[in-house]
């Protein structure tokens, strides 16, 4: 087995606010093999974006933040590096695509400049070589008339085209890991599909691992090998994509999937909802964080936090199953009740 490209162990990101310590990411562990695609889904405030940025090394120990645990990327601990070493990592090892393509681009610089800048800096290309490489990259991300587009400013491009440029920037130095944080949230559905298709083909062509962060379960469903569901700063379930969507083990994953309107139900069907609100991360509850909203919660759930452990899969196999952090995982509940 190949060593993991990314290995995150017990990662905690805490923001020290005037109102107390905010545990945005609270003990997350995950790993990613080269070329693998991982989806991270969760609602706003679940910590998915903070996790992405901490993995990237954009959030580090500082005056008002503390990061503990480790993020090992290709064998290097991202948070043990000096800022200069970390900058070398960005672009060549790991790159990021953000939600809003307009704010990721400098409005007073031409599209081509955005691209040639990083290849000159990281790969040491000459001006002319960098210009050719920029046009190549634009062609690679499916922009028609790349040489003309390279001379345009970001405002002259549509939202979808801008996001393609941002992706081209991320790919400029052939990173081994791409973190895409809500890459299509600001885009229309027809454009969203084009961008997701593009990320998928590029990932396969360049054998690049991808972390796709999204609040939209549908976006993640068809595009990832594995999915991690986050709730209140923790991963509650992590399995291969099909089993999370077809047989969710955690009550939260199940409820979240059930609350999406479907095309094939009759109109005016009332949707199953999750009562209550996520906990305040300034004062997270003891035990399982979903316990207060969970129909299966018992006394154990409110006192003891469940570990993220293997649930054994559908047929009880050892390695095929995924991980779930629940005292009473769905599907396994019946077996437990029988023995009890």
């Amino acid at each position: 087995m190949t060593p993991p490209l990314l290995d995150v162990t017990d990662l905690r990101t805490v923001f020290h606010t005037p109102r107390g310590a905010m545990r945005a990411v609270d003990g997350v562990s995950l790993s990613l093999s080269p070329g693998e695609t991982l989806g991270i889904v969760g609602e706003s405030g679940s910590g998915k974006s903070v996790l992405g940025r901490t993995v990237m090394g954009l959030i580090t120990n500082g005056r008002s933040t503390s990061v503990s645990g480790s993020v090992r990327l290709g064998g290097k601990d991202v948070h043990a590096l000096t800022p200069a070493q970390r900058r070398k990592l960005w672009g060549t090892e790991v790159a990021m695509v953000f939600q809003d393509p307009m704010t990721s681009l400098n409005p007073v610089k031409k599209v081509g400049t955005h691209l040639s800048e990083s290849v000159r800096l990281h790969l040491g290309l000459s001006r002319a070589e960098a210009r050719d490489r920029a046009v190549d990259l634009l062609r690679q991300v499916g922009i028609p008339e790349p040489s003309r587009r390279a001379g345009q400013y970001p405002h002259e491009l549509s939202g979808g085209m801008r996001q393609r440029v941002v992706i081209a920037m991320a790919l400029a130095c052939s990173p081994r890991l791409l973190i895409a944080d809500e890459p299509t949230t600001a885009l229309d559905v027809t454009v969203q599909k084009q961008i997701l298709d593009l990320l998928q083909t590029l990932g396969e062509q360049l054998r690049m691992a991808t972390i796709l962060i999204s609040h939209d379960l549908g976006t993640v469903a068809g595009r990832t090998d594995r999915v991690a569901v986050m709730y209140a700063g923790r991963i509650v379930e992590c399995s291969d994509t099909a089993s999370v969507f077809d047989h969710p083990r955690h009550p939260y994953s199940k409820a979240l999937i059930a609350s999406i309107p479907r095309l094939d139900t009759p109109p005016h069907t009332l949707l199953p909802t999750i009562e209550g609100r996520p906990p305040n991360l300034l004062h997270p509850p003891a035990g399982c964080r979903f316990a207060a909203r969970c129909g299966f919660a018992t006394h154990e759930c409110t006192t003891e936090a469940p570990e993220l452990v293997a649930h054994g899969g559908d047929h009880g196999e050892e390695n095929g199953g995924g991980l779930v952090a629940c005292h009473h995982p769905l599907g396994a509940a019946t077996a437990k009740e029988v023995t009890a």
Partner: peptide, 28 residues
């Protein structure tokens, strides 16, 4: 049909077209 074909697979049903049938390229 294009709108329906653009839906993520999870929401799409077998009856909708695959995206290949739709001319993708052009800008709005």
């Amino acid at each position: 049909r294009l709108l329906l074909a653009s839906l993520p697979e999870a929401q799409r049903s077998a009856h909708t077209d695959s995206a290949a049938e739709v001319k993708q390229a052009a800008e709005l």
